[in-house]
């Protein structure tokens, strides 16, 4: 059975060992100024590549951008 995580309200297929970095890649979130919370907990930028997300996690990737 497939398990998922929720990213900004969208379902994303999960795999064991999935990191924030993977999430960003799959969602094609290339923007630099992000605020990421996994189940409400803030994850710092330097940890994106290593922080693993559990299956079923509610992930908020807030882009702080306001146009030119």
């Amino acid at each position: 059975m497939k398990t998922t995580v929720i990213v900004n309200g969208n379902k994303l297929e999960w795999f064991a060992g999935m990191t924030i970095g993977d999430v960003l890649e799959k969602m094609n979130y290339t923007f630099r100024m992000l605020v990421i919370r996994v189940n409400g907990e803030l994850v710092r930028k330097q940890n994106y590549a290593t922080h693993e997300v559990p299956s079923g996690a509610d992930i908020k990737v807030i882009h702080l951008i306001s146009g030119g």
Partner: peptide, 18 residues
Amino acid sequence: QHDEAWLIFMDMVNNQIP
């Protein structure tokens, strides 16, 4: 013009204002 509000990301990407 977008000088008043620029909400695309907040709305579409961040899904902060459902």
